[in-house]
Amino acid sequence: MVAEALSIQALLRRERRVERAFRGLSTTSAIIVLALLGGVIVALAYDAWPALREFGWSFVTETRWNPVTEKFGALAPLYGTVVTSIIAMALAVPVSFGIAIFLTETCPTWLRGPIGTGIELLASIPSIVFGIWGLFVLAPVLQHTVQPWLIEHLGPLPGIGFLFQGPPFGIGLLTAGLVLAIMVLPFITSVMREVFSITPVALKEAAYGLGATQWEVVRGVVIPWSRPGIIGGLMLGLGRALGETMAVTFVIGNAHRITGSLLAPGTTISAAIANEFTEAVGDLYTSALIALGLLLFVITFIVIAAARLLLMRLEARSGRRE
């Protein structure tokens, strides 16, 4: 009896020890996630410091990027990142909106599953596949058909004409924006679909009860109700577009300059890093590229954090999380 009681106590002690160890281990793992974010910022800032100290604010206002004279300014890649993302969002948002509305409201039920699943699966395709397709298929098509048309018809227009001037290169900001649009399309669509589908049925029923048409229910109930989610989803897509590397690098042309024309080759932050990093000679060059990376991280962090806050607000409202 005594021996048995002792062994039970030993067992309980062991259970408690394991409990403490496991609790510590899982807490540490969770803290690693936090530390990772801090680590990324600190490590990048540390190695970007030589370039940031050398150029100061002119790093983000200077266009010249010259490895030979070691003058580095990030304005051209910054411009390229913003312009390609704007093109991508301008093209992808209306289409993904349409698809999401079609899937949640009009689509026959038997088709809903296949199309929805298909779109979600496409969101998981690696971005390099979009890049290689853009280079070999889309760019030649644009060069021979779409771009000459744009140059001929939109080029002479006053006001926006400058956007469509110059020779048709095939590769450039417009092509990169288009490839990005195709890449973020499945992603934005699946977020939108999710967001639309949690609109309470009772609200929609009430609107139908008042005699609203189906379209009026979408415009008057579904969209207003899910507005924070819509904005959050769009910003998540924007975060993707801003930070995307491979889909852009293939078709951007990697030219550090700002020309008005969307048809001209340019570069983006991520494409500049991907193209030049392994070939960068000299500490200042490497440091300037890491500073670009830091800039990209800060921009995307702000966009994504804002998006997540908006999505959290919607989730709290629909009571999905406890």
Binding site: V33, L37, V40, T245, F297, I304
Partner: peptide, 20 residues
């Protein structure tokens, strides 16, 4: 929240981080 942000952080930045 931080994890959700990391979920969509640009992957090239991760490469830079490991490089440094």
């Amino acid at each position: 929240f931080i994890n959700d942000v990391l979920l969509s952080a640009p992957s090239i930045v991760v490469g830079l981080f490991v490089y440094t």
